[in-house]
Design a protein around this nucleic acid. Structure first.
Lengths: 116, 116
DNA sequence: CTTCTGTGCAACCCCACAGTTGCACAACGC
DNA sequence: GCGTTGTGCAACTGTGGGGTTGCACAGAAG
């Protein structure tokens, strides 16, 4: 496992860096398993562009192709999304921890204040 | 103000699309309020490159400059990160919801099963 | 078999952007 | 005052990649 979902949230953010790709991801998540041709009909880009985006998303482990006859339906793989969310929390958490540490250092009194 | 303080996780993903920028963000979160010059010393890029990244991150509301004399220290603003995490969960949640709906449609029995 | 629709591959264009360099200006130390 | 260090701005370059078009091939439909 973790072929694309084990800590390398980097790839996810790299894939999610493009607006069109985010839209494609959202469409896949919302419209269920869809083909590149179907998606191309819903976006102002060519089918090939959608195919490339799907490829990039698949590379990040966010979607997976499923062949049915001559059709290829892509479905979402939510695991990496969770991974990316964890990364975000990790960064924010590091900062929060640093702030708390800093405050404790400046103000030895453990007073529970809320105002800035 | 708060150009990124409410719901536009799009900008966050756009800003996090670059590896170096992610690294800069991580450094800001970890090393506390830092200047562009200090960061440039920790990265294999020029100070100007760091400045640009900091500008992009600030544009996404992820960091904020704080002038002290002739120095400008950037500190992290964690809120947008949480915003982005919410977006991720939203996408995954939509898919999960769709799956559940699909399963319910195929299998009218509301049995709480765990195996496929 | 013929036709039509969908996929895959390859070449190509072009623009946004990461990164650089150079210089001018502002603030601190002496 | 002078030197030093950090910041800001502007111009420039190069490449990565988003998007396109064209065509060849594979399944489905008739």
């Amino acid at each position: 496992m973790t072929a694309a979902g084990g800590g390398d949230a980097e790839g996810v953010f790299d894939a999610l860096g493009d607006p069109t790709r985010r839209a494609v991801l959202g469409a896949v998540a919302t419209a269920g398993p869809v083909t590149a041709t179907e998606l191309a009909r819903r976006f102002p880009v060519s089918r090939q562009a959608v195919v490339k985006h799907l490829g990039a998303l698949a590379g990040a482990g966010l979607v997976a192709p499923e062949r049915t006859g001559r059709e290829v339906r892509y479905h979402l793989v939510p695991a990496p999304l969770d991974d990316a969310a964890t990364w975000l929390r990790h960064v924010g958490g590091a900062w929060d921890d640093r702030i708390e540490r800093l405050r404790a250092h400046l103000d030895p009194g453990p007073s529970v204040d809320g105002s800035t």
